[in-house]
């Protein structure tokens, strides 16, 4: 059964230095509050897994939490580059970042294999591209029934997966709706999981389309607006102005460091962070 606790307790209990950690959410329900708490608690040497490392992983990488990144698309959606990700790959700042690079279809197949208890996933993919030359976790395989050449990718099995959802009930059953991404597979492929939610309710909303029973979740923490600047369908919109502002905040190391110190390391929790962001009025929150 999932234990309901504070986000700070959930991260302390479940995210260790050196762990393989997946924060999922496909543009919707991105667990920013949990990412911030990992930075606040100073976790290091993490292998970060995520299909679309966007601003939340730019923050984790720039803050020095990551040793390795497993991913398929790293950018600021609709805006441009992730400057901290690029600085780490191009100039080893703040430290070298090993990368294991896939396509979306490959990452999805890897999560499905992990959630299914299989050693690998199979797909028609990567053939004729340069990805297999640089990524060891892509291998050709022959179908034993038809003789077709296909591609195998190993299962992902994170030590801990972190997602954000709209609701949990008082037993820790989790419900989400809207764009659902790969969160169910990411939770079910992991050893442990943390789910932050907009609110804990007596009864889950009937709009729920993805349901994770309490007994497949490790910890649930109530963090209102915990996906900001991403969005939570039915609760608040995507803060596009923040994504655009991130371009300037993150471009230089100094401005990035100052932002992380002021807005994450020197705030007690996500609600204080949000209050600060709102007070500065730089971005809508």
């Amino acid at each position: 059964m999932a234990e309901i606790m504070s986000l700070s307790e959930a991260v302390t209990a479940n995210v260790n230095d050196g762990d393989t950690v997946a924060l999922e959410g496909f543009t919707h329900l991105i667990p920013f509050a949990a990412g911030h708490e990992i930075i606040r608690q100073g976790r290091k040497d993490l292998t970060l897994v995520r299909m679309t490392p966007d601003v939340v992983y730019d923050q984790l990488i720039g803050a020095g939490c990551a040793r390795k990144l497993v991913f398929s698309w790293g950018g600021n959606p609709g805006v441009g580059s992730l400057h901290r990700f690029r600085d780490a790959v191009e100039h080893d700042w703040p430290s070298a970042l090993e990368i294991e690079e896939h396509s979306h279809a490959g990452m999805a197949a890897r999560y499905v294999a992990g959630a299914s208890g299989l050693p690998f996933g199979v797909l028609r993919g990567y053939v004729g591209t340069d990805l297999p030359k640089h990524t060891d976790t892509i291998a050709a395989i022959t179908c034993p029934f038809t003789g077709e050449q296909l591609t195998a990718v190993p299962a992902l099995r994170p030590d801990v997966t972190v997602i954000h959802a709209q609701q949990a009930d008082r037993h820790g059953n989790v419900g989400l709706w809207g764009i659902r991404g790969v969160q169910k597979e990411a939770v079910m492929s992991a050893q442990r999981s943390i789910v932050t939610v907009e609110e804990i309710v007596d009864e889950l909303n009937p709009r729920v389309t993805v349901m994770l029973p309490s007994w497949v979740v490790t910890a649930v923490a109530e963090v209102p607006s915990g996906a900001h600047p991403s969005y939570a369908h039915g609760y608040y919109e995507r803060d596009n102005a923040f994504y655009q502002a991130w371009e300037d905040i993150s471009r230089e190391r100094d401005s990035f460091d100052a932002w992380i110190d002021r807005h994450i390391r020197n705030t007690r929790d996500f609600s204080e962070h949000l209050a600060l962001v709102r007070e500065e009025g730089v971005v809508m929150a």
């Binding site: 496909f26 919707h28 979306h104 197949a109 809207g178 991404g181 597979e185 369908h233 919109e237 995507r238």
Partner: peptide
């Protein structure tokens, strides 16, 4: 036109919303 490929309006106006593994396997592949 949405800023990101996952803006809420896409889900609100869609005929159906499926998971990322499903979109790549059942629909594209």
């Amino acid at each position: 036109p949405p800023l990101s490929i996952g803006d809420g309006e896409l889900a609100d106006t869609a005929d159906c919303v499926v998971s990322v593994p499903e979109i790549f396997s059942y629909w594209l592949q």
